[in-house]
């Protein structure tokens, strides 16, 4: 208890000197190349680069925070950070709880990858996906048996060790994995899901939403956003018109 009070008191003292507003950027840090913890222990990836550029353009001071995917929305609404920038697709269900900016990443394909030749849509297929993702929702509706994992990496591991027949995830996440593992290959058809990826914000934060929308628009206009997309996702990645 004493430690708590001390920490709280010291925090108050330390911050009263800083006047500038800080926007805390929440991300998962486990979804390369969108976001990941790099070898230096720092948050890195496409979203880190986009986020930092947006903050520069909007003249905001940004601080990066990593948070478990499962509790990423509750921690936004309770105010532990101010944005979610974690490869989160814009969907109607999420839009009821939080707000999204305009997309900074176009609607991308999701794909199945497996270690064998199989039909991921068949009723006896066991498909792994990360919990609370549009991919998990899609598998549940497809008729296959859904096996959910807390992190995308665990879903991949489940396919490798035979626990699941296939994984369903964003294709951009799977491409480097399939490329570097001779046992894994894409199976079935790619599926287009979601309305693109946007920054998640509290519904009451209209001002911040407008600021970010403006910055995203300016990055789309001068082509920097498309450059970053091709830099992180390759020449074949879908870019903005």
């Amino acid at each position: 208890m004493k430690t708590l009070l001390l920490a709280a008191a010291a925090a108050t003292l330390a911050t009263s000197a800083m006047a500038q507003d800080v926007v805390r950027m929440g991300t998962e840090g486990a979804y390369p190349p969108y976001n990941f913890i790099n070898d230096d222990g720092e948050i890195d990836g496409f979203e880190r680069e986009v986020g930092d550029e947006l903050c520069t353009r909007a003249e905001l001071t940004c601080e990066w925070v990593s948070n478990d995917w499962d509790s990423i929305i509750p921690n936004l609404t309770s105010g532990n950070y101010d944005t979610i920038i974690a490869g989160m697709s814009i969907t109607a269900e999420r839009d009821e709880v939080i707000d999204f900016t305009d997309p900074y990443f176009p609607p991308a394909a999701s794909a199945y990858a497996s270690t064998m030749d199989m039909d991921p849509m068949s009723a006896d297929a066991v498909v792994a996906a990360q919990t609370n993702t549009i991919q998990a929702a899609h598998v549940a509706e497809s008729g296959a048996t859904l096996l959910e994992f807390a992190t995308p990496d665990e879903a991949v591991a489940a396919v490798r060790n035979g626990e699941a027949d296939a994984i369903f995830a964003d294709k951009d996440f799977l491409v480097p994995i399939v490329d570097e593992d001779s046992d894994m290959s894409f199976v079935g058809e790619d599926v287009a899901l979601g309305d693109g990826i946007g920054i998640g914000l509290r519904e009451s934060d209209d001002e911040l939403e407008a600021t970010f929308n403006e910055a995203i628009a300016s990055m789309k206009e001068d082509g920097t956003l498309n450059t970053m997309i091709t830099e992180w996702f390759g020449e074949d990645a879908i870019t903005f018109e």
């Binding site: 920490a7 108050t12 330390a14 911050t15 507003d21 001071t61 609404t77 105010g79 709880v97 519904e203």
Partner: peptide
């Protein structure tokens, strides 16, 4: 309280959102 949101004034945030990450971790 606005729906699921909990919005106190910025001065009341613990720690303040402008505090360095280390304070958030300590808290």
């Amino acid at each position: 309280r606005q729906g699921a949101e909990f919005n106190v004034c910025p001065e009341a945030k613990l720690p303040r959102s402008s505090a360095p990450q280390a304070w958030h971790e300590a808290y």
